[in-house]
């Protein structure tokens, strides 16, 4: 049996601390924000590379976004992925999780399917964590979310994963193909492999697809295809803190502190 074919869904996000809200227009100002590959997606890619190291096979990167995503996808190729597809079309703009998962699922079908879809659990900008289950539903594949460890029994086409829950974890298994979302920080993404650099930057295949290329259902694309709508945007309020410094010996500091917080303490 040939190696695994894994598709990794990857998103480029603005650095959170550089995004602000224009107080006048109450719109998001991400114009000057630097971008990076979503951290969880880097973990998903590393998980895929790790599986490739063990079981062989190939990795395809899939992303939906504007043309400026392309050099970021090439970084993934320099890390060790084999091919990349960028779904880029104005018609995809403004997509919510329903439209995004529809578009990415269509991309996965157009690539010709795979053994495993790996996603980050959520993106740092939207933080919904709803796209991976959405992709699984559109493809009618089993899903395992919040994964912290993956193991594949290749012959049996069986995948075992450790799922993080609120307190504790569970071990689950399913048959390939399936869709996984991995938690932030489950592994350390390997750095760029400079032996692959020139190939990744210049020769490697990065295919750009528009909506028309794939004959997608416009009713599920972009802003018009999104059931949810953002009705307002604002900067999150920052709590005003007292910032009172207590000083003296540690005993004196403890005493002053106790005087101030005593009403909030319940002796037990």
């Amino acid at each position: 049996m040939p190696g695994l074919h894994t598709i990794v869904c990857l998103k480029v996000v603005p650095k959170s601390e550089e995004v602000s809200v224009d107080p006048e227009t109450r719109t998001l100002d991400r114009g000057n924000a630097r971008s990076e590959i979503n951290g969880q997606d880097m973990n998903a890619l590393e998980a895929a590379l790790d599986l490739k190291d063990t079981y062989g096979g190939r990795i395809t990167i899939l992303s939906m976004g504007p043309p400026f995503f392309e050099p970021f996808l090439r970084l993934g190729l320099a890390m060790g992925a084999d091919a990349a597809y960028l779904m880029s079309d104005r018609a995809f703009g403004g997509a919510d999780t329903l439209a995004t998962s529809y578009t990415l699922a269509a991309g996965i079908k157009a690539i010709g399917g795979c053994d495993l879809v790996l996603c980050g659990e959520e993106s740092s900008d939207g933080a919904t964590a709803q796209v991976p289950p959405g992709i699984a539903e559109w493809l009618d594949l089993p899903q395992i979310t919040y994964v912290s460890r993956v193991q594949v029994m290749k012959k049996a086409r069986l995948l075992r994963a450790r799922r993080q829950l609120q307190s504790g974890y569970e071990m689950v298994e399913t048959l390939l193909p399936c869709v996984l979302s991995v938690k932030l920080g489950i592994n350390e993404p390997r750095f760029l492999d400079f032996q692959r650099w020139e190939w990744a930057m210049e020769e490697a295949p990065v295919t750009v697809w528009t909506a028309a290329d794939l004959g997608l259902d416009e009713g599920y694309l972009g802003l018009p295809g999104s059931p949810t709508a953002v009705s307002s945007v604002g900067a999150a309020p920052s709590a005003q803190r007292r910032g009172e410094f207590l000083s003296g010996t540690p005993q004196e500091e403890a005493q002053q502190l106790l005087e101030r917080i005593r009403p909030l303490v319940r002796l037990s």
């Binding site: 650095k15 601390e17 630097r34 990076e36 993404p189 390997r190 750095f191 760029l192």
Partner: peptide, 27 residues
């Protein structure tokens, strides 16, 4: 690919943030 844990992250920090301390370039 035989590198101690944690060092790739230092280089990614250089790549994304322009410093090895994982701190935002804006600061």
């Amino acid at each position: 690919g035989a590198v101690p844990k944690g060092l790739s992250s230092v280089l990614w920090s250089l790549h994304w943030d322009g410093n090895p301390w994982r701190r935002p370039p804006s600061q």
